[in-house]
Every structure is written in structure tokens, then in C-alpha cells.
């Protein structure tokens, strides 16, 4: 089985800052592997460890420095990675990005049906959660988002638990398939020493739009049906803190319960 995990380099930290004047994400700081992708990599590597003869390839699309996340993926147990890279991809929204990534997945899978693709739930910079489901759409493969558990997987099919608002669904689908996973699915490992050493030596092929056989009209700004009109950080909600007064602890407790009753909370 060929397991493919899609990863992205994003600004480090869970809360990404937005420039209040331009509305753009501030990308001048440190970059890191998208935190949600850690769970996708871990799950991919766990499936590999349980499935003899399988391998994991990481895929990323991004500028040259994004290669760092492929190294991180190898350090965490992936066997290799490919880097979708070129000016023609610049400005792509999620629809164009998922198209480019799905072309890379197609090239990697070489018509072998025994392919399972993992994505993180979303990125910490744009937060859309589009990529997994959109890739499934481009590829014409079954998919599931918000996957919280892999119940069973073999070279032919996969059965997963998909988190819903009121519980979870159990979904079984044939391979090839695309899954995007949530953080409840596992606890990512710390990269081993041998993994770190392997990641230093790893070489990653760079794939251009031409090599992927992409239709140029579907890439970059031209291939992006969405456009960002405005981007802003909502003002912080004012907190209405009420201090409960009272002479003794018992008084304070009585006053608190009275206040809660008045607010119809009790």
C-alpha cells in the first residue's frame, strides 16, 4: 500500500497573526509544519508500521523553503517526499491547491488502487479544512473528513470513525481514498534520532506544473475561484466580570447564588 500524506509549511504557533492594515497573514516570522499535519503524519506512519510492504510519501506544495516540512515528515517516519514547487502555483486558493496536490497524488499512485491519502483537518493559517475533501473531489475517490479513528485498514479498503456534532459515523470505503484527520486520532511521536539523521540526508524531487501535467488555467490566481476581499482579526470580546462581595466565605457564597439566580443561570 502506498500511503501519501499532504503537509504544509505555515507560520509557527497555533494563533497566526494578521496585519491589521493590509489584512494579510504575517509570514515574516518563523515557519513550521502545520500543527494539524503532525497527526496526519503520525497516522500515516502507524498504518505503515502495521502494514508490511507499505511506504509513506509526504507531499507539500510551497516555495523552496517549504522543503523543511518534508524533512520533518521523514524525521517522523515517512520514507520520502515530493515537493510541488514553481511560480505557476503562486496565488493558488484551496481549489487550485487541491488540484495541484491531486495531480501529484495521481502521479505517485501510478494507477495502483492501493493508495490512502492523509491530510490534517485544516491549516493554522487559513483554517479552511478544504484540501482533503477537495482532493477527493478532483481525484474522484471516496473521502472522509474529521476522522477521529481508523478502525480497520488493509490494501483494499478502510473503515473510519468520522466525528459529527452529535456523535460519530462509521464509514467504510474502498481504496484509493482521502482522509483528513483531527487531533484526537493519535499522539504524535517525537522524531527518533535515526529519523532525524535520515531526514538530513533525504533528497526530495521538485515537481513543476508541467511535470504534473497540470492545466495552467486551473492553477495560481487564474485557477482560483475565491478571492480574499478582506481579512481581519475580530475585536476581543469585552468581558463583564462581576466581583462577588461579602464579609465571610458564607456571605460570598450566598451572594453568588443570588446573583446566579437573578441571571436565571440557577
Amino acid at each position: 500500500m502506498h500511503i501519501i500524506v499532504c503537509v504544509k509549511q505555515t507560520p509557527a504557533g497555533e494563533n497566526v497573526s494578521v496585519d491589521q492594515n493590509t489584512g494579510c497573514i504575517i509570514r515574516s516570522g518563523e515557519s513550521a509544519l502545520n500543527p494539524f499535519d503532525e497527526f496526519a503524519i503520525e497516522e500515516a506512519v502507524r498504518v505503515k508500521e502495521k502494514t508490511p510492504g507499505s511506504k509513506v510519501t509526504a507531499v507539500t506544495m510551497g516555495p523552496p523553503q517549504a522543503e523543511a516540512v518534508l524533512r520533518e515528515a521523514v524525521a517522523r517516519g515517512c520514507d520520502g517526499g515530493v515537493h510541488v514547487c514553481g511560480r505557476e502555483f503562486a496565488g493558488s486558493d484551496t481549489w487550485a491547491t487541491s488540484y495541484a496536490l491531486s495531480q501529484a497524488v495521481k502521479k505517485l499512485s501510478e494507477n495502483d488502487p492501493s493508495v490512502l491519502v492523509f491530510c490534517g483537518k485544516q491549516t493554522n493559517d487559513s483554517d479552511t479544512g478544504h484540501i482533503g475533501p477537495q482532493m477527493a473531489q478532483w481525484l474522484g475517490w471516496p473521502g472522509a473528513a474529521f476522522v477521529r479513528k481508523l478502525e480497520a485498514v488493509d490494501g483494499k479498503s478502510v473503515r473510519v470513525q468520522r466525528l459529527m456534532e452529535d456523535g460519530y459515523d462509521v464509514v467504510e470505503m474502498p481504496l484509493p481514498a482521502v482522509l483528513s484527520v483531527i487531533k484526537e486520532i493519535n499522539t504524535p511521536r517525537i522524531a527518533s534520532l535515526k529519523g532525524r539523521l535520515a531526514s538530513k540526508k533525504a533528497q526530495f524531487p521538485k515537481w513543476s506544473a508541467a511535470e504534473l501535467g497540470c492545466d495552467p488555467a486551473k492553477l495560481g490566481l487564474d485557477g482560483s475561484p475565491t478571492s480574499v476581499v478582506r481579512c481581519f482579526t475580530p475585536p476581543q470580546r469585552a468581558s463583564n466580570t462581576v466581583k462577588i462581595q461579602g464579609e465571610t466565605a458564607a456571605d460570598k457564597a450566598r451572594n453568588l447564588s443570588a446573583a446566579l439566580k437573578e441571571a436565571k443561570i440557577l
Binding site: 517525537i190 534520532l193 532525524r196 539523521l197 538530513k200
Partner: peptide
Amino acid sequence: TQLQTEIAQL
């Protein structure tokens, strides 16, 4: 060495 730095980091 680079390896030793990695060990400390890990």
C-alpha cells in the same frame, strides 16, 4: 557535532 546537537535537541 551535528549529531550531538540533534541528540541534545531530541
